[in-house]
Design a protein around this nucleic acid. Structure first.
Length: 202
DNA sequence: CGTGTTTGACCCGCGC
DNA sequence: GCGCGGGTCAAACACG
């Protein structure tokens, strides 16, 4: 695996410093050090975001490989510490244009479904991404000594799933993989959009 | 009693 | 076709 991972430190309970609920994401600028969307965009943050996880060859593609288009969806209010943004779905045709070999049909399907994975340094076993999830499976997988947990969105009709597992090579890190898109807003995005300040639990 | 989790069984795609 | 591995189902269970 050649990708460099995003490193964030989450030691407190409550809100994590970085969450990625589907395409709608909240960067806790208080913890990540981004004061606004421009700071975020000009950072090398994107180079460390991971997408297109291939279980067969244990490979991640980075967002920078597939040139996502980002757009700010709402700016931070004074006193707020959250920035929201969207990332467009990966484009498999772009990958093919770059003559990348070894792209399987499964990976094409995964790209069409939109798969985003990231790794976060945290002691938490589950990151609060603002959505309500129902656990439907837990599995020991060959590529990881740690268990993989499977979640579905609790909202009826919402097809998104996520997998959560500790990194087998370094269990300080949590790997979260989202597959699909929410068809609704998260509770937290409503809060962030309407409240002037956010209290971080200690 | 309602809601969420656990866990073994089952399903299915893929490689051989 | 078969076996393996990952993903899902669903009944049993836990808990407030």
């Amino acid at each position: 695996m050649n990708s460099t991972f995003l490193e964030t430190n989450i030691t407190q309970t409550g809100n994590p410093s970085f969450t990625f609920p589907n395409l709608y994401s909240h960067i806790m600028t208080q913890d990540c050090g981004f004061n606004n969307f421009q700071d975020f965009e000009s950072s090398n943050f994107l180079d460390h975001l991971l997408v297109d996880y291939s279980p067969t060859n244990n490979r991640f593609s980075t967002l920078s490989e597939i040139t996502p288009i980002m757009q700010e969806t709402n700016s931070t209010n004074s006193g707020s510490c959250a920035t929201s943004f969207y990332v467009t779905p990966p484009n498999i045709n772009h990958l093919k244009e770059k003559n990348q070999v070894g792209i399987t049909n499964k990976e094409v399907k995964m790209n069409k479904r939109h798969v985003i994975a990231f790794r976060t340094k945290t002691q938490l076993e589950i990151l609060d991404d603002g959505y309500k999830w129902r656990k439907y499976g837990k599995k020991k997988v060959k590529s990881n000594t740690n268990l993989r947990n499977y979640y579905k969105c609790s909202i009826g009709g919402c097809k998104i799933k996520k997998k959560v597992e500790r990194d087998g090579h370094d269990s300080r890190y949590l790997i979260t993989t989202y597959e699909g898109r929410h068809n609704h807003e998260s509770n937290s995005s409503i809060i962030y959009n309407h409240e002037m300040t956010i209290e971080f639990p200690q």
